[in-house]
Design a protein around this nucleic acid. Structure first.
Lengths: 103, 103
DNA sequence: TAATATATGTTGACAGCCGACATATGTCGT
DNA sequence: ACGACATATGTCGGCTGTCAACATATATTA
């Protein structure tokens, strides 16, 4: 069942935020809300569940912060695999919209 | 929490198929597979769960078939409310793609 | 000093989705 | 007449994602 799994809205925005640069959980939550114009809010339960899941999948990896004083942050970086997953999702969304032409 | 609920891929295609004309469960399954180029297959569990759910929401209604010999079919028709839900979802997908510009 | 923002995490409950299974009729080739 | 397949609808159980609520700790600002 190698079917391309649709991503949830939350997962999509997490990947999207990380595609614009490494970030940490709380930062992603804020960025998502801003990026979506307030429409999408990711709760911490969703956030930290998702990061664990994506680490397992190899879509993101944790990196050390080079900024002093921000050691509390856990910085995540998109992997090549994660970027592929995001592109696949973008393509899926585009196909979905194409199929809606004339509706 | 009046947050706009994202639709699943299956729900989206069911509404999309019905937007092109009244249809029955099995017909929607086939139409979805064809429409998506074989990418999206809706299982019967999803299908009949979804129709019940959408009936409750008022997105679809059941109508009587005027074709003789096809009494087994349960024909569904999109309501105005269902068409609105579909348009809202299309807009959501478009916004998601706009947010991905430059990725 | 108190409130708020930053930052990460756990837990429990709920709902949705899907695959697998079940059932029945219709059709088509041999 | 028979078997295979397509048509057509439906149930059930498990898995996953989501969110609210709770918990903890530090930093900033009034």
């Amino acid at each position: 069942m190698k079917r391309i799994e649709p991503l949830s809205e939350s997962y999509y925005y997490i990947l999207l935020c990380l595609a614009k640069g490494a970030n940490h959980g709380y930062g992603i939550m804020q960025m998502t809300e801003k990026l979506s114009g307030g429409d999408v809010k990711i709760g911490s339960g969703t956030m930290y569940g998702a990061t664990g899941n994506m680490m397992k999948k190899g879509w993101i990896r944790e990196i050390m912060s080079d900024e002093p004083g921000l050691e509390r942050r856990r910085l995540y970086q998109l992997t090549d695999s994660g970027r592929k997953a995001l592109r696949a999702e973008i393509n899926r969304l585009q196909r979905m919209l194409e199929n809606a032409e004339g509706v």
